[in-house]
Each structure stands twice: as C-alpha cells, then as structure tokens.
Design a binder for these strands. Structure first.
Lengths: 133, 133
DNA sequence: CTTTATTTCGCAACACTGTTGCAAATATAG
DNA sequence: CTATATTTGCAACAGTGTTGCGAAATAAAG
C-alpha cells in the first residue's frame, strides 16, 4: 500500500508544540519564514500559519507587526494568565533585523476620553545594543 | 494614429499632487487601496505606490503600519520641516476600521542604553471616540 | 479493541500588498 | 526645437497570509 507520507515529511501532529518551543527558546521575535527555514520541509506552510494562529488565540504567544508589515511572534513572558494587551516596546533593529521585546520598558501615554484599548503595538526601529552604532 | 491613452485613463502627470491632496484632506490615515478606490481606474496601481513612496521620502506624508500589516498614510501635521521620527500615537479602530493620528498624545518611554531610535510606530487598536463602545 | 468524533495536516488555489524592469509619455532645461 | 529628466502604464513577479477540502492522526466513546 502506498504511503502518502514519505520520510521527508513525517507527520507527527505536534506542529503547535514544536513551533511554541522554537519561539520560547528564541531570544528574539520569530517570523513565519524563520520557522519555515528551521523546520525545513517537514511541515507545510499552512500548517505553521495555523499553529501560530492557535498559539496566539490561546494566549501563549503574541503577535508583533514589524515595520515592514510582517508578523513576528514572541513568547509571552511578563504577561500573566490574563493576557491583557502587551504594554511593552518592541525594538526592530535595522542592522541585524532582529526584533526584541523590551519587556522592562513600559511606555506611558494618556488617551483622550472616549477611546478604549484592546491591543497596543509599540515598535521602535533603530540600532540595537548589540550592533555598532 | 492610435492613441494609447483613451478617455478612461487620462494621463496628467500629477498623481503625486492628487494623492497628496487626498491625504491632506482626509481626517484619517489613508491606505493605497483607499486611494485606488477613489481614483478609480484613472491611475495605475504602481503609479500610486510610487507617488506614495516619493511623498514619504520627501517628508510630506508619513507611513503608518497598521495592525494588519497594511501601510496607511497621513499628512505630517505637527512635524516641522526636519521631519524627525513621528512621536505620536496612531489609533486603529476595530469598529470603523479608521486610523487616526492622535497628534497630541506623546508617549514617553526610556530605552536601555545602547539603543538608538530611527523611527517609532505606536499603534493602539481599540474603539475610537466616534464608535459605540 | 472497535467505532466515532475531533483535531491536525497537506495540497491546491486564491487574494492582497508591494516591487522591479522596461518602454512610452510627459515635463523640464538648454 | 532638441536633449535630458521625471512620471507613467504594463507585465511580471515575490512575499505574506487565507480558505476549502479531503485525508490522516489523535482523542473520545462505546
């Protein structure tokens, strides 16, 4: 009988776990294409997109929209279980292209009355502390 | 002799001016597709992209990357000629899908040493003051 | 264990945003 | 007017992300 899944594409139904582990172990925010590069061809593009969606929905990771419009993902560190909006700054380095969560930097701002907040996306682009200025 | 440009597509070489006017007269940030919708088929997709690029480069408008990763554009109001980075908050309403510049709200934050700032992108999504909460 | 239901997955196909190369059209300078 | 520079349209492409569907894997029920 023909095996549809060959050696190159072992199906294990654990994409979500693998993706989560990868994001947790990364110092910087990770994009879909980063994950694709690491998992190679063991998983399908769409499967990874769906795993990321599920993880975001479950509040395990959060999505960062980079300056170039591409989503990056980072594990939720400082956020508790409640997973309110992420009130910290993301730094996008123009030199090394890495996006890091500056968990300790809490921006403060005062919204005019009548506005309610669901989600914040604070991204600063510049040169990070690891790159030569 | 064959006219390549028919009545439906009058070439006027003023796309940049038209686009700038449209953005200036808008209360909210405007996307490429918004402009396409208004200019209809009088201009080419690419022409509008290039006009926007030029306007951004000239410091006439600034680019806002929305939560969904799509670029929106707004006229530079508070920024002077020098056009440093835009230190104000953009509010993206989940109800009316409009993006407004909250020019008066200046977020404050303290970066760790070793970081230098080129550009900031502060977008808050939620419900704006015109929509029912 | 066997059957059923749920979840995850791969594939194909698509939509949308944005970019690039090139040639034609327009505007500007001399 | 002629030469040069800018703007434009078209085609083609790349990248990101989504959807439908049927198959496979896992979990749950009997």
């Amino acid at each position: 009988m023909l095996q549809k899944n060959n050696m190159n594409k072992p199906r294990k139904n654990n994409t979500k776990a693998v993706v989560e582990k990868m994001i947790r172990e990364s110092e910087v925010a990770v994009s879909h294409s980063d994950i694709m590069a690491e998992l190679g061809k063991t998983r399908n593009r769409v499967t990874i997109y769906r795993a990321l969606d599920r993880l975001v929905e479950e509040g395990v990771i959060h999505r960062i929209v980079n300056i170039d419009g591409v989503s990056k993902f980072a594990a939720c560190q400082t956020c508790g279980d409640k997973h309110h909006y992420h009130n910290h700054i993301h730094f996008s380095c123009t030199e090394c292209n890495e996006v890091t969560c500056l968990d300790d930097v809490e921006p403060s701002f005062n919204l005019p009355s009548g506005y309610s907040v669901n989600e914040v996306n604070f991204t600063i682009s510049g040169v990070c502390n690891k790159c030569p200025q």
